[in-house]
């Protein structure tokens, strides 16, 4: 579920970060895993503090033990280019990494668990010959 704070009044954004943090806390209570802040294009960026305030909010998230899946600040109008609008049109092939460690279906589950529990890997793809993906182990 994606939470969206799109109705923040510009003046709200210029207050101390806790003012914006409170509605975000409400979203956490709703078990929302991702927050998108959409700043109104009329937001007064004159003081140049918006990115810093958003950064503070992200830091607050982490200090509260909440790991957002993705925290994106979308600017309808990135005045001055202070923060570029995230390019949500990027393709998977542009985002992915290809340094993969995979196992076959015959691989020992015990050895897999050692790799995962020692922190060597957090997840592993299971493939068949020919790179055919048949499963994931987490």
């Amino acid at each position: 579920m994606i939470g969206r704070i799109s109705d923040c009044a510009p003046e709200e954004l210029l207050r101390p970060s806790d003012k914006l943090f409170l509605p975000v806390l409400d979203l956490i209570g709703m078990n929302i895993q991702s927050v998108v802040i959409v700043l109104p294009s009329s937001a007064p960026f004159a003081d140049g503090n918006i990115p810093q305030k958003i950064s503070l909010i992200i830091r607050d998230f982490l200090s509260n033990g909440w790991s957002p899946l993705l925290f994106t600040a979308l600017f309808n109008d990135p005045l001055g280019g202070f923060m570029a609008t995230p390019n949500l049109d990027l393709k998977a092939r542009d985002l992915m990494h290809t340094r993969l460690v995979t196992v076959t279906r015959e691989y020992s589950a015990r050895d897999l668990s050692i790799l995962i529990h020692t922190g060597t890997f957090s997840g592993m793809s299971v493939i068949e010959p020919g790179n055919l993906l048949i499963g994931m182990v987490n």
């Binding site: 991702s34 949500l88 279906r105």
Partner: peptide, 30 residues
């Protein structure tokens, strides 16, 4: 019986094609 990867894996995992957009990927993850 010695457990193997196929016994503990999640079959038919959620995947995306290489042409999927970042927005599609985020939606799928969430």
């Amino acid at each position: 019986h010695t457990l193997k990867a196929e016994d503990v894996m999640t079959p038919n995992p959620v995947t995306v094609e290489e042409t999927a957009t970042a927005e599609d990927i985020v939606k799928r993850m969430v």
